[in-house]
């Protein structure tokens, strides 16, 4: 239960919460996606930390090395990074499309546009 033994995990939690805050508190869509990426990276650090063995080496076989870190989290996170970029690309493409249709990627401005549309329908 010592503090030092869990230092990596505490850093992960702090990073994750910074990203989470960016996603829910920021209105700008590009900023939201950056927050999502922050959140993602913190999860990556969590997995890689779990696979590390103190005194171990990068899992590439070579002479004179006895202890290797766990290669399985590395594989998992390699996949996750690439999939993360795919989701980022789709999210940003949606943001571009919204920007073209409504002229903004800000949440509050979009809400105003929507309200104005509803008012128009009410008068017509």
């Amino acid at each position: 239960m010592d503090l030092l033994g869990h230092y990596n995990y505490y850093v992960v939690v702090v990073l994750m919460m910074i990203g989470f805050y960016a996603v829910i508190a920021r209105g700008n869509m590009a900023k939201k996606i950056m927050g999502l990426n922050l959140f993602q990276t913190s999860a990556f650090i969590l997995f890689i930390s779990a696979g590390k063995i103190l005194g171990g080496a990068t899992p590439i076989l070579r002479d004179g090395v006895e202890v290797y870190s766990n290669p399985l989290p590395h594989v998992l996170i390699l996949t996750a990074i690439v999939v993360g970029v795919a989701t980022t690309a789709v999210g940003l493409a949606l943001a571009v499309r919204i920007n073209e249709a409504y002229g903004s990627i800000e949440d509050d401005l979009l809400t105003e546009v929507e309200d104005a549309d509803e008012d128009d329908e009410g008068t017509a």
């Binding site: 890689i48 990068t58 590439i60």
Partner: peptide
Amino acid sequence: FVVLDAGDVALTE
């Protein structure tokens, strides 16, 4: 990631 022995992950990141 390099410090945590994950060379391949560091390259990708």
